[in-house]
């Protein structure tokens, strides 16, 4: 249980959005393998603070893989080596004694680096604002059971709705495309009768917004699906394309 490992860390440090950044080197001794990756960084930060150095800024909140706050790149892979796992759920038992880990922020033009490993993914909000909702005011909903939705449709809608907005898909895409994120929301709503009413307007507007915000085009690399901690499928992107064509042809 009380196994420990030693690690060499190379961590990207950058003062703020406009400054230049570079890698800093830290060696970590006796890291318990039972702790999480973020707890390992907590220890490093404690050590830095004690030696009078400002700790590394990184973001996290729930630390249970649901809020989408955490996220950086470990050895070139967004959220690190474990499939379908956010960095907050990644544990040190998956690393070996003596490993060198290169840690850098999610890089994509629409995600501004705030500091060190922290990026601002507010541009995702802009995409949702462009139509990622059902236009209904509070109190206008009919009785919930008056809308019948087959179990399978509900399950599929859920699969798409499970996106946590972490941005790993964008960070891992060579084009910095937000297609997986955007299509997840479009498919979620497309698979429900409530969402179908506004389908055409929604898809067009959200896709346009994605371009406006500076996200690149999707060219089917599929890296996004591979790193997505919630297993969002690229089928969603196909759904989005189909819906987009429909909206243009009309």
């Amino acid at each position: 249980m009380s196994d420990v490992i030693n690690l060499n860390l190379q961590v990207w440090r950058q003062e703020n959005e406009n400054s230049d950044g570079d890698f800093h080197y830290y060696s970590m001794k006796d890291v318990p393998v039972d702790i999480s990756f973020l707890e390992m960084l907590d220890i490093l930060n404690e050590n830095l603070t004690k030696s009078g150095v400002e700790p590394i800024s990184f973001d996290s909140d729930c630390r249970e893989g649901i809020c989408g706050t955490c996220g950086f790149v470990i050895n070139g892979v967004a959220h690190g080596p474990m499939a379908r796992t956010t960095v907050c759920q990644l544990h040190m038992r998956h690393f070996k004694d003596g490993d060198t880990l290169v840690i850098e922020p999610f890089r994509a033009t629409p995600f501004k680096i705030v500091r060190d490993l922290v990026v601002d993914r507010g541009s995702f909000d802009k995409i949702i604002q462009a139509g990622g909702y059902v236009s209904i005011n509070t109190g206008n909903g009919p009785d919930a059971n008056s809308i019948l939705i087959g179990k399978e449709d509900a399950e599929e809608a859920f699969d798409s709705a499970a996106c946590i907005g972490c941005g790993a898909c964008v960070a891992s895409c060579p084009n910095a495309s937000a297609a997986l994120f955007t299509s997840a929301k479009i498919s979620h709503l497309l698979q429900l009768p409530q969402g179908q009413v506004e389908e055409r307007a929604r898809v067009k507007s959200m896709v346009d917004k994605m371009d406006d915000e500076g996200f690149g085009a999707c060219s089917n690399h599929g890296e996004c699906e591979a790193v997505c901690p919630k297993g969002i499928s690229i089928k969603n992107i196909a759904n989005m394309r189909r819906s987009l064509i429909k909206s243009i042809v009309k």
Binding site: Y133, V134, I136, T138, G139, N140, G141, P142, D143, A144, I147, A154, E155, A157, F158, A161, H188, L189, L192, Q194, G195
Partner: peptide
């Protein structure tokens, strides 16, 4: 009622 109308996949 409200949440279902918004598309919450219960």
């Amino acid at each position: 009622d409200q949440c279902v109308a918004q598309g919450v996949p219960f």
